[in-house]
């Protein structure tokens, strides 16, 4: 089996990286903090124009018909620039859930998502607050054993502050007349898969965030002089950066493996996602901690861009299941009777 990414997947990654690095600058992110919605309609239109909002939408509904695996490298790039727009949520959570719900709901909303005309946001009970509920044209909300579809006039939103100024979090009260689109076991299964995809998106973004913090710190430590040389030449500084690099390298494979697992609907997808989210968020948290260290006191300041990426890493670590939740899932898998473990069982 060949698990390397295809030429197309790598080409997409290159193109999307070029776009995001040029367009989603720290200055643009800071400017969005000053706006009421915190979101940039022009940027969303550009993302749609590039085909990104429709990447996982079926071709017959105006999308590119690609899988979670095709999107995973792009989600990393979204993390690299700390993209605040709900692109990862759209491609990995909202669109697949709509696809699975199918019927008139999917036929109505997926073409609009692909065209960049609508945003659909999913709120699971696992997340107490719903990110970007204020810009949603449709909310898919888990309530007990049901999934409801609510339009903006059917919800009441209460804003909550986030550690990350780019995030807009809301508690959502839904009206009784919101349409039920799934219930019982089916709703629970859909919610579990949505949770897996949300966690997978967090993991991929965490890889990008960690890489960005490393890149910023490598640049800084190559330029900042002390005792007659760049501080990056000192062993103590090198060790901080090397430790992140090692953690990051070992986090990539589980994230890519989880994307494969989700795209192929493997039975072990949930465990693979939990493993990926744990190691990727640990790498991002270590990157945040060590990069602050090597920046010295100025790393703590508002003016230095490092905190944009650090705070997003912190926020993602506790979204779509915190470390405790995901460790429990991995533990249950490992300690289950007759569990298939070891290299031979990786893709069994």
């Amino acid at each position: 089996m060949d698990f390397t990414f295809s030429e197309d997947q790598l080409l997409f990654q290159d193109s999307v990286r070029d776009f995001l690095v040029n367009e989603v600058t720290p200055e643009r992110i800071r400017a969005s903090w000053e706006t009421a919605s915190g979101r940039d309609a022009a940027l969303w239109a550009q993302l749609a124009e590039l085909g990104l909002t429709g990447l996982t939408v079926p071709e017959e509904l105006g999308g590119l018909g690609m899988s979670e695996l095709d999107f995973i490298l792009l989600a990393q790039e979204c993390g690299y620039v700390a993209l605040a727009e709900p692109l990862v949520h759209t491609a990995l959570v909202a669109v697949p859930l709509l696809r699975e719900l199918g019927g008139e709901l999917a036929a109505q909303w997926l073409p609009r998502i692909a065209a960049g005309e609508a945003k659909v946001i999913v709120g699971l009970e696992h997340n107490l607050l719903v990110e970007d509920a204020h810009v949603a044209d449709l909310l898919l909300l888990q309530r007990g054993e049901r999934i409801l579809a609510a339009t903006p006039d059917q919800v009441a939103l209460r804003h909550n502050e986030s550690v990350d100024p780019s995030r807009r979090l809301f508690a959502v009260d839904v009206a009784a007349d919101a349409a039920e689109v799934a219930s019982g076991e089916r709703a629970a299964e859909l919610a579990t898969r949505a949770l897996d995809r949300g966690a997978l998106g967090c993991a991929a973004q965490a890889l990008g965030l960690a890489q960005r913090m490393v890149d910023m710190s490598v640049q800084y430590t190559s330029e900042r002089q002390q005792f007659g040389q760049a501080i990056g030449a000192f062993q103590a500084v090198k060790h901080h950066m090397a430790n992140i690099a090692v953690r990051l390298e070992y986090a990539r494979a589980p994230v890519h493996r989880a994307a494969y697992s989700v795209a192929c609907a493997e039975a072990v997808a949930s465990q693979a996602v939990s493993h990926a989210k744990l190691v990727a968020c640990e790498a991002a948290n270590l990157a945040a901690k060590n990069c602050i260290q090597v920046h010295g006191a100025m790393g703590y300041t508002w003016e230095v861009d490092l905190h944009i990426f650090m705070k997003k890493a912190w926020a993602l670590a506790n979204s779509w299941g915190d470390a405790g939740f995901h460790k429990t899932r991995v533990g249950e898998h490992i300690f289950a009777e007759g569990a298939a473990l070891g290299a031979g069982a990786t893709f069994a």
Binding site: F12, S15, V16, E49, L50, G51, L52, L55, L64
Partner: peptide, 12 residues
């Protein structure tokens, strides 16, 4: 402009 993903595919 930036190349869109559908156009990247068509280019092949």
């Amino acid at each position: 402009r930036y190349a869109s993903l559908p156009n990247i595919m068509k280019a092949k």
